[in-house]
C-alpha cells in the first residue's frame, strides 16, 4: 500500500458550474488552446448550462471532471511504454511526457474521457508559456491530463482548482489519513465515485 493516497472531494451541492476550476487548470498547467484537463459538464439538457425538464419542472447540476487518479487505473495497464504510471508514494497517476509515443491506447482505455491529445503543435494564447514554470512542456503527438497539480502538491500546496474554487466545493488531501479533511467528508457525507462498476476505484469522490 502506498504511504499516502492523495485524493479529492468535489461537493456537487456546492458546485455552481462556474468553470473557474477549468480556467485555473489551464493557467497553472500551460494547457494549450482547444483542450482542457478539467471540464465542467452540465447534468441537464443538450447544451452547456441547460436544464433538463419542462418549465417549471426543471433540474440542473454540474459535474466537474478531470483525471480520477484511479487506484486501478486502466490507462496505466494499457500504456505500452510505461509512460503513464501510478506513483507509489502518493497514488498519483502521472504521464512521463518524454516516454509517451502518442498511441492513445490510454485515451481509449480511460472510461472518463479526461485525456487530451496534441494533434498539432500546441497553440497558446497569449503567445507565451503561462502557469507554473515547473510544469513540463508538451509537444505535438503527446497525451496529457490532470496531474493533481503535482508540481504544487510536491511543495505542500493544494491543486490550483482547489485553491481557486470560489464555492469551496473542492478539498484535497490524503485518503489514507483518517483525520484528513477529505476522509472526514467522505465519512460524513453521501458520496459517489464515477462508474464504480468499472472497478477503477477513483481517488476522486463526489459529495452528494
Amino acid at each position: 500500500m502506498a504511504e499516502r493516497k492523495l485524493g479529492m472531494t468535489v461537493d456537487l451541492k456546492r458546485c455552481i458550474g462556474c468553470q473557474t476550476c477549468a480556467v485555473a487548470c489551464r493557467m497553472q498547467n500551460n494547457v494549450p488552446m482547444g483542450m482542457l484537463w478539467n471540464r465542467v459538464l452540465t447534468d441537464g439538457g443538450e447544451h452547456l448550462d441547460r436544464a433538463r425538464g419542462t418549465y417549471p419542472y426543471l433540474t440542473k447540476s454540474w459535474l466537474p471532471l478531470a483525471c480520477q487518479h484511479c487506484e486501478n487505473a486502466p490507462c496505466v495497464k494499457v500504456c505500452p511504454v510505461g509512460a503513464t504510471y501510478k506513483r507509489e508514494e502518493d497514488g498519483l497517476v502521472l504521464i512521463d511526457y518524454d516516454k509517451c509515443i502518442g498511441c492513445r491506447y490510454c485515451m481509449a482505455a480511460c472510461p472518463y474521457n479526461v485525456r487530451v491529445f496534441n494533434w498539432k503543435e500546441p497553440v497558446r494564447q497569449p503567445g507565451h508559456d503561462y502557469g507554473d514554470a515547473k510544469v513540463p512542456k508538451r509537444r505535438k503527438g503527446i497525451v496529457e491530463k490532470c496531474s493533481f497539480c503535482v508540481e504544487r502538491v510536491h511543495q505542500g500546496a493544494e491543486p490550483m482548482c482547489v485553491l481557486c474554487c470560489p464555492a469551496k466545493a473542492r478539498k484535497f488531501g490524503d485518503l489514507n489519513d483518517p483525520d484528513s479533511e477529505v476522509s472526514t467528508l467522505i465519512r460524513r457525507r453521501r458520496t459517489k465515485q464515477l462508474l464504480e462498476d468499472k472497478g477503477t476505484r477513483p481517488q476522486v469522490y463526489y459529495l452528494l
Binding site: 483542450m35 465542467v40 452540465t42 452547456l48 459535474l63 471532471l65 472510461p111 474521457n113
Partner: peptide, 13 residues
Amino acid sequence: SFIKGSLVAGAAA
C-alpha cells in the same frame, strides 16, 4: 454520457 458531455463542455476548438 461522458463523451457526449465532453462535447457539450469542450466544443471549444
